Simulated assay, not measured.
Amino acid sequence: MNPISRHLSVLCFFCLIPMLVAASSQGKSASSVATPAPAAILPLPKSFPPVSDYADMFSSKTEKKISRMLDTYKRQSGLGVMVMTIGSLRGDDINMYADRVLDASGKHALLIIARREGKIALMLDEDLEGRFSQADARRLISSDIVTHFQAGLYDKGIEAAVKTLITTLGTAPLHKSK
């Protein structure tokens, strides 16, 4: 990876969602949960489908529905968008990991959720600068994701977030293409 990222971290949101943290601590109090030692760089996935739910947060029906939405969006706009959940960052930085995934995948946008840490990041390729603001990202994460996730409605939250993301990005073609 180049020392200077060509991706924009629109927003890295640390939303310590009680439901996510509680699920990962398995009933232990926050003070008794051991913090993992910083690990080697989290490995990249072998493939980059539109939806990679490695943390098993969504139903298979929702995964298929979102995959279809993102495939349709790619055909209409030429923009590749990916949603990924991971169980844990294992000491890695969410922005650095998201940057590596986005670079390796060739996609234009990545919405990533680290379940154990309760972190959410939205990473956009620099080609999308100006299409999605910090305010758009905050709204997407707080209104679409966090509100639903705190109520245990993971499927509804991710579906709402993807709809907001692709609607806000629009379908105008990029001047640069991947």
Rank of each mutant, 00 (worst) to 15 (best):
S67W: 08
M123A: 07
S67Q: 13
K119P: 00
R90C: 03
D99I: 08
T85P: 01
E117A: 13
I94M: 03
D93E: 06
E117G: 11
L124E: 08
M82G: 01
E126W: 09
M84A: 08
K74C: 11
D103N: 14
N95Y: 06
L79R: 15
F132C: 07
M96N: 09
T85W: 05
R90E: 03
I86N: 07
S105M: 10
K74L: 14
D93M: 01
E129R: 13
M69L: 12
A104V: 04
L128S: 06
I86G: 06
G106C: 04
A114Q: 14
D92G: 05
I112T: 11
V83T: 04
G118V: 08
D71I: 10
R115D: 01
D127C: 07
V101P: 02
V101G: 03
G78I: 01
I112R: 13
H108A: 14
D71K: 10
G80Q: 06
A121C: 15
R100Y: 03
S105Q: 07
L122W: 01
Q76Y: 09
R90Y: 00
L128F: 06
A104L: 03
I66V: 15
L111R: 09
L128C: 03
R116F: 15
L79M: 14
I94T: 00
M69A: 13
G91A: 03
L124I: 09
L128G: 04
S133H: 08
G130N: 03
E129P: 01
M123G: 00
I112S: 12
I94K: 06
D93K: 05
A109M: 07
N95M: 10
D125S: 13
Y73A: 14
D71P: 01
M82E: 07
E129H: 08
I112K: 13
Y97L: 02
V83D: 00
G87L: 04
I112H: 11
K65R: 15
R100E: 00
E129F: 14
H108K: 15
L102R: 12
S105W: 10
R100W: 04
F132G: 03
A98H: 00
G118M: 11
S67R: 12
V83K: 00
D127G: 01
L70C: 08
Y73P: 11
G78R: 06
I86Y: 05
M96F: 04
T72C: 02
A104Y: 02
S67I: 05
A109S: 14
E117V: 11
M96W: 00
M69E: 14
G106P: 01
L128Y: 07
A104F: 02
V81T: 02
M123C: 09
L111M: 15
A109V: 07
G80Y: 00
I112Y: 10
D92L: 04
R75H: 14
G91C: 06
Y73D: 13
G78K: 05
D93H: 08
D92Q: 05
S77M: 09
D103H: 11
A104H: 02
S77D: 08
L110D: 10
L79C: 10
L102Q: 09
D71Q: 14
V83P: 01
L128Q: 07
S105A: 13
S77T: 11
S88N: 06
